[in-house]
Design a protein around this nucleic acid. Structure first.
Length: 676
DNA sequence: TTACCTCGAGCTCA
DNA sequence: CTCGAGGTAA
């Protein structure tokens, strides 16, 4: 046997034993025998580095660090599921399914554990793990392949021949026992312990050095399919898919069940909930999917996610703590928000010390008083909530919180608009809190993106005597105060230069970012983009009238009048003048250079050969068209490349014209294809 | 909202 | 070594 053959044999054999261990929980050999094989393989690879492969088990201990993670665009978006709390919402889900399918028989559901970890997309090409990526915003995540290779249970090579591309999805998580040992070790080395297994797992996947990821001993369970090159034609339901994934070498939990009808489903959910603490890892609910793929297809998707699945979340964990006080926070628009200051309490895996009380109507409705023992919970999402007071523990002398009559920061009398619950500080120009929020928004990442001007620095510069920052234009005056900046703590030559450079660089941000940065009410980054495209220039925008504004697609009467109001205010005109005087010249958006696609909405799906998708979309927009993300009846046509998935199905279903990339290119004269 | 990782740069002490 | 900022995840 040549070293090459021997190495290949060892690799297959080691992976087979890994699968027996991690997938089937039925090892055939002991740890020491496994070690012997592993070390022999390692020795061969060390001696003949050219024999080392990416799917070799030796890669599981990690490789040299990468410098950063590359963005990874998902071929099929990783959507999120709707949540359901309690039996009622589960029944409502079932009703909706039956209604949409127009059937009266019991639906077959597949129910699986909802792991408390982080989701991963694993792409295999010809059976070998090619890419492991995080979910990100669902459209694109990060390529963490080297880290993924160290996760036990993620097969580096599939157990069966499988030609073509395959994307499997699942969850990376840390077992409770691993978490405890890891923390014991960390404490022994006087390192900071992790707060919960989820964070330890999530942090592990964020390591640039995959050897450190390997030390976290992470696990993986598969739960679904992103994309398959047609390899799964024989598989017609989710449960069968899970079994097939298992035969391919993916760990799949045994708890997965098929439940016929909502009553069986609710029984199962209750069982899982009851026994969840006995599981070796954390879960936060049960994922329920309509089992049959044909029915799934029929149900389709909403804008948010699949209509055929729901995430049942366990009731939020609750804890008792003391309400130490109520802070009144003043936001960018002057709205005063009461925030509960809580005695820190560990609930739902984190320490909660603050929670919004939204408004005083809520405070009164809940009848919480300072000094009360209150119930706090962290519901399915991430926002902690004060549920209410524990009345038995109330001090009889406690007083109902007083609704502030003046701004806690600038002491201007607060106003309450007709029909609104919110209290507002009307001193938009002089209130330090509002100014600080406006500054933060203006320099923020989606606006002018001035690096080095964070919350702390803004606060610091505003509180100097005399203040360096007083309003938005004063940002551009910082360069005249180099000495003062240098005299501040932790501001050396380099920091000051970097800050001033970043401020200079922000002067030519695109118009849409600039408009967003102004913080006009109702104008988020989307609307700012619409405005920039419609009016083309700052002057154009400043001259906009209500009548013109309501004509902008996606801008309604409310937004239009907010913008009109903003434009009419003298102080805002002065603000723009001051910024222009300071040298701010927003870059005007590229106007459509043609009208080839005027009025058309184009959707790209699948992989494009000659174009990057963004470039193709930019081309459509330059030619006066709109590039949309999803197919609807308003779509003019769909350009489908290889690997097109649900969007293609949707297009066929709606009878929308579909063309190939080549056909699309034929529509575009050579000259117009150039991408600047 | 909280927790984690990474980076650049300033600060501190040898 | 420590801090602040920036990014990401749920």
């Amino acid at each position: 046997m040549t070293p090459n053959e021997r190495a290949a044999w060892l690799r297959t054999e080691i992976e087979r034993h890994n699968v027996l261990y991690y997938v089937h929980d039925a090892p055939e050999i002991g740890d020491s025998e496994w070690d012997v094989m592993f070390h022999e393989l390692k020795a061969i690879e060390d001696e003949h580095p050219e024999l080392r492969t990416q799917d070799s088990p030796t890669q599981r201990v990690g490789v040299a660090p990468v410098s950063k993670f590359e963005p990874y665009r998902h071929g099929v978006p990783m959507l999120s599921l709707d949540n359901a709390f309690g039996e009622d919402e589960l029944r409502a889900f079932d009703e909706r399914i039956k209604r949409v399918l127009a059937i009266d028989v019991e639906v077959e559901y597949e129910a699986e554990l909802k792991f408390d970890g982080l989701s991963m997309s694993l792409t295999y090409v010809d059976g070998v793990l090619q890419v492991g990526a995080t979910r990100g915003d669902g459209i694109s995540g990060e390529d963490v392949t080297t880290n993924a290779r160290t996760v036990r249970g993620i097969p580096l090579r599939l157990q069966r021949e499988m030609l073509g591309k395959l994307e499997v999805r699942g969850e990376v998580l840390m077992f409770k026992t691993v978490f405890e040992t890891l923390n014991r070790d960390r404490v022994a080395r006087s390192e900071q312990a992790f707060v919960n297994p989820r964070n330890a797992a999530s942090g592990g996947m964020r390591q640039l050095d995959s050897r450190l990821t390997a030390e976290r001993k992470l696990n993986f369970f598969a739960y679904g399919l992103g994309f398959a090159d047609g390899q799964f034609r024989e598989v017609h339901d989710q449960f069968a898919l899970m079994q097939t994934l298992r035969t391919l070498g993916f760990p799949v939990r045994e708890e997965t069940r098929v439940c016929v009808g909502i009553d069986r489903l609710i029984e199962f959910v209750a069982n899982v909930q009851q026994s969840r603490s006995r599981l070796p890892f954390g879960i936060d609910g049960v994922v329920i999917k309509v089992n049959n793929f044909d029915l799934q297809k029929e149900l389709g998707f909403t804008a948010r996610g699949p209509r055929w699945a729901v995430a049942y979340k366990f009731p939020a964990e609750q804890a008792f703590t003391i309400l130490n006080g109520i802070e009144n926070q003043v936001g960018r628009t002057g709205v005063v928000t009461p925030v509960a200051e809580l005695e820190p309490v560990f609930v739902g895996g984190v320490t909660v010390s603050r929670a919004t009380l939204h408004n005083y109507q809520e405070v009164l409705r809940k009848d919480v008083r300072v000094g009360d023992t209150v119930t706090v919970q962290r519901a399915g999402d991430v926002i902690p909530e004060v549920v209410g007071p524990v009345l038995e523990k109330r001090n009889p002398d406690s007083k109902v919180p007083r609704i502030p009559s003046v701004c806690p920061v600038c002491e201007t009398p607060l106003i309450q608009q007709e029909g609104m619950v919110a209290l507002r500080c009307p001193n938009s120009k002089g209130c330090a809190a509002q100014i600080q929020c406006k500054l933060q928004h203006f320099v923020g990442r989606n606006a002018m993106d001035i690096e080095g001007l964070g919350e702390k620095q803004i606060e610091r510069y505003m509180n100097l005597n005399p203040p360096l920052l007083t309003d938005i234009p004063s940002i551009y005056g910082l360069k005249d105060h180099r000495e003062i900046l240098l005299s501040l703590e932790r501001m050396g030559e380099q920091s000051v230069t970097n800050l001033l450079d970043a401020i200079e660089a922000s002067k030519n941000r695109p118009l849409d970012r600039f408009l967003f940065g102004l913080g006009i009410r109702q104008v988020g980054d989307r609307t700012a983009g619409d405005l920039a495209r419609t009016f083309g220039s700052l002057d154009g925008f400043m001259a906009a009238t209500y009548d013109r504004l309501v004509l902008v697609p996606d801008i309604g009467p409310t937004t239009a009048s907010e913008i009109e109001e903003w434009l009419e205010l003298e102080e805002n005109k002065k603000l723009i003048d001051a910024l222009l005087k300071a040298g701010v010249v927003p870059t005007e958006p590229e106007l459509p250079s043609g009208n080839l696609f005027a009025g058309q909405t184009v959707v790209f799906t699948g992989k494009l050969e000659k174009f990057k998708r963004e470039d193709a979309e930019a081309l459509v927009m330059r030619q006066g068209g709109k590039a949309a993300g999803s197919v609807s009846k308003n779509t003019s046509f769909v350009v489908a490349g290889p690997g097109a998935g649900s969007k293609l199905d949707k297009a066929t279903q709606l009878g929308v014209q579909v063309m190939t990339e080549a056909e699309f290119l034929d529509m575009v004269p050579e000259l117009m294809r150039n991408v600047e």
